[in-house]
Amino acid sequence: MIKELRKHKVLFAMMVPAVVYFFLLCYLPMAGTVLAFKNYRFDKGIFLSPWAGLDNFEFFFRSGKALLVTSNTVLYNAAFIVSGLLLQLAVAIVIAEMGGRFLRKAAQSVLLFPFFLSWVVVGAIVYNLLNYDYGFLNVLLRAVGLQPIDFYSSPGWWKYILLFFHNWKYVGYNSLVYLAAIIGIDRSLYEAASIDGANVFQRIRRITLPLIVPTTVIMVLLSVGNIFRGNFDLFYQLVGSNGLLFNATDVIDTFVFRSLLSSQDIGMSAATGLYQSVVCFAVILATNALVRRVQPDYSLF
């Protein structure tokens, strides 16, 4: 152990700030989880408030919507993960293979730009695109003599709308990780392949893809770990308080926000948060175990 420390002392020194940061901001506050079992009082604070047993969990499971919102959350996230993965890989590979430096930078910037827009802004953009009276899409439909579509009262469309805007916003940014992995690949492999007469598709298929599998697996594992957490901003800003769409668009986070907005019971929201964390933890353990069985090198731990 000491020998190890001495040998890699620079690396360990680099780790210290991160360890301190996460200990202070992630591990210490975990004690706050007790809130889920407390009847929170403002004057007594977290630890002195009276115990509430499992009362705080009752609301979520009794609501009759626990199953719906949980499955919505998981399905949306699964769709985000799968579609995101394919698009991000494709974007990274295309950008890496692109010839001109200027073109490459331009494409990357254009794709990256939506990431810096806040969801509030995206929500406004979507509203101006889709609303019935003067939304851009409906104006277009009317202009070509088609029936306008009332998106905001047709739940069926929202699966695709949400999926589209989620990817639109994140593809550019998340593909950076894959791009970094591709750039890290030894160029001599490609040169050797070219000399052997491999075309661009063969090079991608035989060199690029196999070598970024570890990165891909790690990225997927990380997103699977959050599969029970809905992206609140996305769902809240795009759907808002439009009850007509809730069955198709409600995720755990928006449901809890709406139910507790007026009563503001901190214990009850903490309870749902704990539920999400526990399930996420179980899922990540299971997926990791699965990955380890298939290929031990690729697992996270």
Partner: peptide, 25 residues
């Protein structure tokens, strides 16, 4: 490239467990 990648991934992984808890503390 690998070291860089691992650093990024580590940061992302840990940031995931951050979340909203810090307010409570």
């Amino acid at each position: 490239g690998l070291v860089l990648l691992v650093t990024i991934l580590f940061a992302v992984l840990l940031a995931g467990c951050g979340g909203s808890n810090n307010e409570n503390g």
